[in-house]
């Protein structure tokens, strides 16, 4: 066995995860209508928020320093970035654990949490591709209010990095939640609670500055704001270049912390796992 491993071509270990992501993307493109449906579902809250704010701004021109243009641009950017970066690995894991489909995966020479993240990546690529026309349509509809970002090349690079790390943070949070199913078997209630709270803490509901007192303080210490909220702020030019790279560093620290938690939960959880169903 060790000789086989020693003579294996370099990169074979990663290739299986790459293949899983590609297969997942192909599957998602084959059944692209599903991706369209979920991208639309992701955008509806943003459009709803914009409509509410449009009604609110009939009586005033600024709320806490935000103009209507700022708000519209903020929610559209949140819609596309949050939709493209948020994976729901926890639902896949919950389903496979509950139905006993995890058992054969444990006997394979793969890291199951990494495999799930790769599969979700393929799905997100498809969702992003179908989401771009939806986003373009919404930008066209609200064109009178959309502010075009003017970023320096360094800020654009920082934006790209912040998106990659935000994706890693959101995926790792999903896997952490998914690991809970190793104890509870059925955890969809926990997931719903987490994501509804996450909607508030990640800035999808309101720019964090507008949250009421205690919630605002919680939002600034929770990991959620380093998900989609930070890249959105970067894209809107609300963060200076030095602040962008400082934020990227903090995101990186969160990735390390969350990866450690995933490893710990997976190790403890698989000892507890009883392999129901199957």
């Amino acid at each position: 066995m060790s000789a086989e491993v020693a003579t294996r071509p370099a990169g074979t270990g990663l290739r299986k995860y790459w293949s899983a992501a590609i297969f997942s993307a192909q599957d998602a493109f084959t059944y692209r209508a599903t991706a369209v449906v979920w991208m639309l579902v992701d955008f509806v809250p943003s459009v709803v928020m914009i409509l509410v704010w449009q009604a609110a701004y009939r009586t005033q021109t600024s709320v806490e320093g935000y103009s209507l243009h700022d708000m519209v641009t903020y929610y559209l950017a949140t819609g596309i970035i949050a939709g493209a970066l948020t994976s729901h690995a926890e639902f896949t894991m919950n389903w496979e654990i509950r139905d006993g489909r995890l058992t054969p995966q444990l006997t394979r020479p793969i890291s199951y949490p990494v495999l799930v993240m790769c599969k979700e990546t393929g799905w997100l690529i498809a969702k992003l591709v179908v989401g771009i026309p939806v986003f373009a349509l919404l930008v066209f509809i609200f064109r009178q209010h959309v502010l075009v970002p003017h970023l320096s090349p360094a800020a654009w690079i920082g934006f790209g990095l912040s998106c990659l790390l935000a994706y890693a943070i959101l995926s790792l949070i999903g896997v952490c939640l998914g690991c809970l199913s190793l104890w509870t078997i059925e955890s969809s209630g926990i997931f719903e609670l987490w994501w509804s709270l996450g909607g508030v803490l990640s800035g999808s509901l309101l720019p964090l500055e507008l949250l009421p007192g205690v919630l605002r303080h919680v939002a600034f210490v929770a990991p959620h704001r380093w998900g989609s909220y930070f890249p959105v702020r970067v894209l809107l030019g609300k963060v200076p270049v030095a602040g962008i790279y400082e934020g990227v560093l903090i995101q990186f620290c969160w990735v390390i912390a969350l990866a450690t938690i995933v490893a710990l939960l997976w190790r403890l959880g698989t000892r507890k796992y009883e392999g129901w169903g199957g």
């Binding site: 209630g189 719903e192 009421p212």
Partner: peptide
Amino acid sequence: ASFVMSLISGYGWSLVMLLFLSTV
């Protein structure tokens, strides 16, 4: 356990929307 969590989490999105509309 999931039943209890579902019971609580059902409030989630509605309370989130209540928070949003009340804040506005």
